[in-house]
Amino acid sequence: MEKGSKEKLKIGIYELTGCAGDALLILDCEKELIDMFKAADIQSFLMAKSDNIDGELDVALVEGSVSTEREKEELLDIRKRAKTVVAIGICACFGGIQAAFLDKKDWEKNFKKVYGDKKMTHTKPLQSKPIDAYIKVDYYLPGCPIGKEQFLSTFNRILRGHPPELYRFSVCVECKWNENDCLLNKGIPCLGPITRAGCGSICINHNLPCVGCWGPVEEANLTSEFHLLREKGFDYDFIKKKMANFSGTGMADFLGELKGEKK
């Protein structure tokens, strides 16, 4: 171990169910990677190294949602070992695409459709959920994947003992900064107003509507967005599906309420 590393914060980077895009993004910070390993004592990072140690941690960064019993146990163990847990990426923060089925019955139906009656021997499958369904999460760093700049700034602030400083407004703000013409006003179903900023409104910059992959912004006005899309001519199922696609669990209450509403 490098000299003086005792004072460095012990960090672990973990991946649960997801595409590993967030871990990959961290690895893709090529310019900063050496500084990162110099500034912190990275104890565990499966994608980057093989000599991983599962000991006490100052900070655990967790990517992915929980979708098996084994992952749940692993997560509980991480929480026990880490002083601070940061959920990184949409799957850890809001469940991601694999958590689009909010209703347990819907999930069971779909599970059966995919796997049939096959018996699972490796581990017990669970309905996919964000990590805060099982443990206390200290900080959330959303994204699909997380943004390089926000990750580096968050990593750096955590090393210095500061909480992350993220944009807390919707994609619309960055979209305006990029001087895009509003897609909603052209009748295109864009989730910008209810989605957290940080991506730099990358889709709308390319004339594609926001799909909500960074999860709902703190103050998302789902009712107004829903009715606005209804008025623009989109049907109930389409809007519900679109909203639930990436971060259904972040909107579970609202989507649950909609269930009872007339189509």
Partner: peptide
């Protein structure tokens, strides 16, 4: 109840000048 709190009115306004520092 209706406002999306998207900040668009403020960002496009020629007389708004508030800023934040990071």
């Amino acid at each position: 109840d209706t406002c999306l709190a998207c900040g668009s009115c403020t960002n496009v306004c020629p007389t708004c000048g508030c800023y934040n520092i990071m």
